[in-house]
Structure formats: structure tokens, C-alpha cells
Design a protein around this nucleic acid. Structure first.
Lengths: 224, 224
DNA sequence: CCAACAATCTAACGATTATTAGAATGAAAG
DNA sequence: CTTTCATTCTAATAATCGTTAGATTGTTGG
């Protein structure tokens, strides 16, 4: 085989990964799956598009080797093929934020008042949480919390946040996080908690971002 | 603006980066530019395709914010927009190697005898080079060596390797590297040096891979 | 075995994209 | 000022991709 042909073949293989992450819908799927395995049904509900389309995109991701499936009764459960796929998503988003001004503009627009965002460094936050000075709340669905969550974080799913408010002291600083910078759950939580008088900010990191930055995450706790 | 619309807008921006890295040619351009800035002329020669096509792909990379240009006389000099773009290329390639069996097969096929590859860890190699136990040679063109190279490495461009052989002791272990796992320069160097009786192996890392792994690189030395 | 459900497969449409050829720009050199 | 050279821009074609609709597979529960 000639050199050129072999080279083309190599770059073409990498381009398959590139193609897989060149569609907005597929990126959204990857981000969701980075929170934990999910059925097609759940993914369809989150994306708010036709099941057939979700299925087609999942097929593309499968053929690129980025996700795997297993059957569970009537449901097909998808998950990321390995941890580095979540890292790839984080890196793509970071590069996009760095090099695409429009994205930064849109992101700033999202949170409105920048004082709603946490300015503390990850290391400082971790130390404050360890000492009990701040309370970190994970506002994603419980199953995602179980797959992995930040150290010292409490699960407080946005869907049933009102019920949890009783156990949240008003005199402590609260930090809310969700799936990452593109997820609105923590923003909504900040809005609700602020209206109740809490001092609360959003941490833009999700578990993947936290992990990609080299910080530890916790998992397990299958208790309801 | 509705939530869905804003979300779609965000993922679409990241997908622009994905689209930019979804073409084999553009990936090859990124890898070349990761070695240092280059004119369209040079890039065209390396890719072995029409200038117009190279120009079109460079345009796409520019619009994604991954590369920048500056004019120098009649020439347009392209360079990566920032260091993390090289990191993105390395990560894409690594994910592809992990998840695409075909790529691993092709790569193994490339080097033929696996004994031609260096098995030592990066840390060990660095220590051996520091102590002078091994000689690291950089077989890329000199300008790329000047942009950045591995610590303790000597420039020994493949194009004029015969002339440098006089200064290379036969009793030392030699390690050759080039642009990365997809580049053949170091493979060719191993072939030549082995035929001359050297104990020589290829380090599959290029400068970007070495740096992405957290190891230091050196730059400068504008002396000819 | 049949109905209900989750998900995929197939076929088809319109919208992008890669690639090529030809014309146009912009700097340098005679 | 004209020619030359490096590069880009424009237009056009063929191939690929996203999306939708309809038929199909495989599973559960009666």
C-alpha cells in the first residue's frame, strides 16, 4: 500500500469521530449520556424531537464507537463507550467557548446577572464544602446523582425541589450545579432559592467538567 | 427567547467545531499546523492536493476559529489559533484509537515489526535523555524543531539525515520522533539508522502528544 | 396467539458539503 | 505599468447528511 493511501485511511478514521460530534443533537445526546446511562425514551423526552431521529443519531454515535447499547426488557439503554468520551465533549465545548465569540455572548446572555454565577475556584469550593461552610446541591434527577456526583454534594432534584427546602438551612451559602454550562436546571434552582431568601450561586461545572479539571467525584449510594 | 431555541443555539456553536474536525484533510492540516505556522504553499505540498482545495479547507478552519492567518509578502501564513487546538487534535486521535478497532489495526500495520517502537514510559525516557543514556533525535524539518521540541532533543531532519550521521555515536541508544503517530518520518529514520547498525526505536509521540501528557517542551534556539 | 409498546430499519426529500474549474485579488519584481 | 506568483472567491456538480414518514422487529402482558 502506498504511503498516501495509508495516511488518508488514518485521518479518515479520526474524521469519523469528528463527524459524530458535528451535529448539535448528537452533542446533546453525548452530554446527557455523560450524566449516566439512559433509555431512548428518556433521551427523546430531553431532546424534544422525534424518536426516529434520536434513534438515527444514536446509530451514528454507535457506529463511531462513542456509545454502546444493551437491551433491558422493552427498553434499549445507551451509555458512553468510555470515560474519555465525556472528556472529548468537555474539550470540544471549551475550545468552542475560547474560539467562538458568539458562544460566549450567548452563554453570558443565559445567566443574566453574572452575580448568579460562582466565582470561587474549584479547590476553594471543595475545601469550603468539606468544612461545611457551603452546601453543594445537585439538582439533576436522582439517577444521575447516583451515577456520579461532586464530593459532599446533596441530591436535590429540581423536579421536587420544594419538598427539600425544609432541610436546607437559610444561614448557609448554597452552591447549585447540574449537567454543565449548557444546562438550565441550576439556573432555575438559583432563581427559586433566591426568591426564598437563600444566598445561592450556580457552579457552571457539571460532573464531567469537574472530572476533566482533575478533581475527584463520588459515585454509588444506591439508597433511595 | 425560549429555552429550547437557546439550547439549540449553544449546541450548534459547539457543532461548528465538530464540523471543522469532521474532514480528514482538515485534520491533517491541523496536525501540520500544530508543528508550527506554515504557508498555504507548504501545506499544499504536504497534503498533495490542489491549492484551491487546501484554501477552501483553511477557510472552514478559519470560520470555526481554529486557525488564524497573517500575510507575509505574497504568502499567507497560517497558524493554530491557540494551544488547546493541538490538544483537541490529540484527544480526537486518542478517542479514535480507543474506540475504532480499524484504526488500531491500521496503525499496527504501519510500523510492521512492533520492536521498532519505543516501549519505555515518557518519564523514564526523559530521565535517560537527561543522563545522556539515550539520544533523542527530532527528524522533522528544522523550522518545526525551532517552534517546539522535546527536551534534550537534537534536530536531525529526515531530508538531510545522511549528513548528520557522522555526529551520531554508534554505541548509544537512539530514539527518533516526528509529528506523531500518523507521521512516517521517524519510521523512515528507524529504517535508515537500523541499516547502519544503530540501536534505534521510534517514539510515537509528537510534540503535541508529549505536551498533552503533561510533559514540558522546549522552544526557540533560532540558531541555524 | 394477539395487542401494546419501544425502538429500529427502509426509503425519500431537501439541505449541506467536498471537490473541481475559472475568474479575480493583492503583493512583488521587472 | 505589466507580468508573475500565491492565494482567494464564485459558480457548478456530485456525494453525503438531517429529517420525516411508513413498515418492521422484538418484547411484554393478557
Amino acid at each position: 500500500m502506498k504511503k498516501r493511501e495509508l495516511k488518508d485511511l488514518l485521518y479518515e478514521q479520526v474524521a469519523r469521530i469528528g463527524k459524530a460530534v458535528s451535529s448539535p443533537k448528537r452533542l446533546e445526546l453525548l452530554e446527557l449520556l455523560a450524566q449516566g446511562e439512559k433509555s431512548v425514551e428518556v433521551l427523546t423526552a430531553e431532546l424534544a424531537v422525534d424518536v426516529k431521529l434520536v434513534s438515527a443519531h444514536l446509530r451514528a454515535l454507535r457506529e463511531a464507537g462513542l456509545v454502546c447499547v444493551r437491551r433491558e426488557g422493552k427498553f434499549m439503554i445507551y451509555r458512553l463507550a468510555a470515560g474519555d468520551v465525556a472528556g472529548l465533549w468537555v474539550m470540544l465545548r471549551q475550545v468552542a467557548e475560547t474560539h467562538l465569540g458568539e458562544l460566549r455572548t450567548a452563554l453570558n446572555h443565559l445567566s443574566g446577572d453574572p452575580s448568579r454565577l460562582l466565582a470561587t475556584s474549584r479547590a476553594t469550593l471543595l475545601e469550603q464544602a468539606r468544612q461545611g461552610d457551603v452546601i453543594i446541591i445537585d439538582v439533576r434527577p436522582l439517577s444521575e446523582f447516583h451515577t456520579a456526583h461532586l464530593p459532599y454534594a446533596r441530591s436535590m432534584p429540581m423536579a421536587e425541589i420544594e419538598q427539600h427546602l425544609l432541610h436546607l438551612p437559610l444561614d448557609k451559602e448554597i452552591v447549585a450545579y447540574c449537567r454543565g454550562p449548557f444546562c438550565f436546571l441550576a439556573d432555575d434552582a438559583v432563581t427559586v432559592l433566591q426568591s426564598k431568601g437563600y444566598r445561592v450561586r450556580k457552579l457552571t461545572d457539571g460532573v464531567s467538567e469537574w472530572q476533566a479539571a482533575g478533581f475527584p467525584v463520588e459515585a454509588g449510594e444506591v439508597a433511595a
